[in-house]
Simulated scan of single mutants.
Amino acid sequence: MGRHSMRKIVASLTAFTALTAAASAADLPRRAYTPPPPPVPVFTWAGPYFGINAGYITTTKDSVTTAGVFPFNDGVLVGNRPAAQALPRDGFTGGGQLGYNYQFTPGSGFVVGAETDLAYTDLSRTRSATGRLGGISTFRQLGNFLGTVRGRVGYAFDRTLVYGTGGFAYASETYRGVFQTANGQPNFYGSSARVETGYAVGGGIEFALPTDSVFNVFHSNAVTVKGEALYYDLGRRTVPLVAVGPGVGAYAARFRNEGVLGRFGLNYKFGS
């Protein structure tokens, strides 16, 4: 066999060996690519929200005090008119709220915001008292809505928010007083209906539910539930009871507007 033929055989064997190795490498199992896990979304309280609330409201300072305007209006002094008449009021409250939160750091961190709400209040009471000389004194106070515009400051522990709140409060109030003689004939009467203003302070705790909660009927970014307590003070209102019929002169009845409420709420948050 010549040298030239030997070289051809060696070259052929080399090429065959290389092809065999390449084919074997192609048949080896490839290492599967494992994508990194998706990032866990971080909850944030930031964004606008709206919701509903319901609870219980009661007055805390609820006595009506009365005094004669002129010296001869001495019904309180002689015990024929009450110097103070308890007028406690309590009942259901329910309404809606609208607000916005800003969170400094997603997840856990400080949250600030503002909220306005308006709620129906079932605050109505009428009471009568009979004086020592037979005079009948009747007082009535009625409140049918309470609204607030408040700031909120709190701290979020991920999906739990603890907050304090305070700001402006206003309410519809109706006052009425009637003094009658022993035989039921009116001799002093006064009435006033107005919107009173003051302040409200309180605090609460709020929890964010899963986005796919059955309560998420509006397909919002989050549904939250809260429990909240507020104290409100709308000041005092003096109502003159002027003479009618056989009456002469006038009395002054001072009503008070302070109370507390506790309520639960459901919010739908949008935005981030």
Rank of each mutant, 00 (worst) to 15 (best):
D212S: 01
G235E: 05
S213W: 02
T44V: 04
G55R: 03
L98T: 07
G135W: 10
V112D: 06
V40N: 03
T44K: 11
A253S: 07
T116W: 10
F255M: 00
F264W: 09
P88G: 05
G55A: 00
A86N: 14
L118R: 13
D27T: 14
F50T: 01
T59R: 08
T65F: 07
T138R: 12
D233L: 06
F72D: 13
G95R: 02
T181A: 09
D90I: 11
A46L: 12
A86S: 15
Y120S: 06
Y102Q: 12
Y231V: 03
F50R: 12
R89N: 10
F92S: 02
G167K: 10
F16M: 14
G68W: 02
G235S: 03
E206A: 06
A67I: 05
Y189I: 08
G166V: 01
T14M: 15
V42Y: 08
G55Q: 00
V10H: 12
R7Y: 08
F139S: 10
T58Q: 14
G177N: 04
H4R: 15
N183D: 14
V178E: 09
F72R: 11
Y232D: 00
R254W: 02
T224V: 00
A67W: 11
P39N: 01
G79L: 07
I136P: 02
A193F: 05
G99N: 04
S213D: 01
R31C: 09
G143Q: 09
Y251G: 03
D117C: 00
